[in-house]
């Protein structure tokens, strides 16, 4: 607790403003999300979130998000590595491009990805010739999640890689390790917590992603329908409690996932 005769002023005022701002705009609305599903009763709530269509949507949202974030680990590591360790013409442009999925409105990203990967698109057409259908399939859902998640991994790994002392790698090399061994045994373990953090952020974002996914997903119930879309559908049928139940299930599952990842990160540190 700050001392009563604290030299820096404004603690009471700034804390009151913060609590008012946080309470009114975030906590009160989230309280509604926590309490509304209770109207269904325990049995009704369970029934509402275990409907086959809900389970399929949750499975797709979480499965695709985890798969996309896992694929983003090597991709993000590659980009971070190149940006931190090498100097080359065009590096500034690549660096700025990494943030594009952060800045681009999700609906624009969704439209653009759909145009590119549709069966008549620039990338979709050659893929279709190979027999691979991306747009309007679960693969498209994963692709959009890959797009929104990439910057999280890059931006999480970059600062750690930049501050990594070269001496450790040099020592490994002096002790006779090959370059590959030094990277695998020295660099990668040092980056692991940052990679995990990036994975967690990318997954959290991808699980809830809506705008960039719904255009490319095709939104077929049981096949390519994501959980957030199911919330919208239930709201349109004025099933508020049912919509809130799906939202609550998403939040609870995300929370459990983040908790597990956090534990994994803590366990990693002593090693």
């Amino acid at each position: 607790m700050p001392r009563r005769c604290d030299a820096v002023p404004g603690f009471g005022f700034s804390l009151s403003v913060t609590l008012l701002w946080l309470g009114g705009l975030v906590l009160l609305p989230l309280l509604a999300l926590l309490l509304r599903p209770a109207e269904l009763g325990p049995a009704g709530l369970w029934h509402s979130v275990t409907e086959p269509r809900v389970l399929a949507a949750l499975r797709l949202s979480f499965g695709a998000a985890l798969a996309a974030s896992a694929l983003n680990l090597p991709l993000g590591l590659l980009v971070a590595w190149v940006l931190v360790r090498y100097r080359f013409p065009g590096r500034g442009l690549l660096d700025a491009a990494v943030d594009l999925p952060f800045a681009l409105p999700t609906a624009v990203a969704g439209l653009a990805l759909t145009a590119l990967y549709a069966p008549n698109g620039w990338i979709g057409a050659p893929l279709a010739a190979l027999g691979l259908k991306v747009a309007y399939t679960p693969l498209g859902v994963g692709l959009a999640m890959l797009f929104v998640g990439l910057p999280f991994v890059v931006r999480s790994v970059e600062p750690v890689l930049r501050d990594l002392p070269r001496e450790a790698e040099e020592a490994a090399a002096t002790l006779g390790a090959t370059r590959a061994q030094a990277l695998w045994r020295v660099v990668l373990p040092a980056l692991a917590p940052a990679l995990l953090a990036g994975f967690a952020m990318a997954s959290a974002r991808a699980i809830g992603e809506y705008g960039s996914v719904i255009f490319i997903a095709g939104n077929m119930p049981m096949v390519s329908e994501i959980a957030p879309l199911l919330i919208v559908t239930r709201l349109e049928q004025f099933d508020y409690a049912g919509a809130a139940a799906v939202g609550l299930a998403m939040l609870a599952l995300s929370f459990l996932m983040l908790l597990a990842l956090n534990l994994a990160r803590r366990l990693w540190r002593p090693a």
Partner: peptide, 18 residues
């Protein structure tokens, strides 16, 4: 304060409807 970043945009709208 950072919580809204890990909440789906759809849920961010849903809470106001509730």
């Amino acid at each position: 304060i950072e919580l809204p970043f890990s909440v789906s945009p759809v849920i961010s709208g849903l809470v106001w409807v509730l």
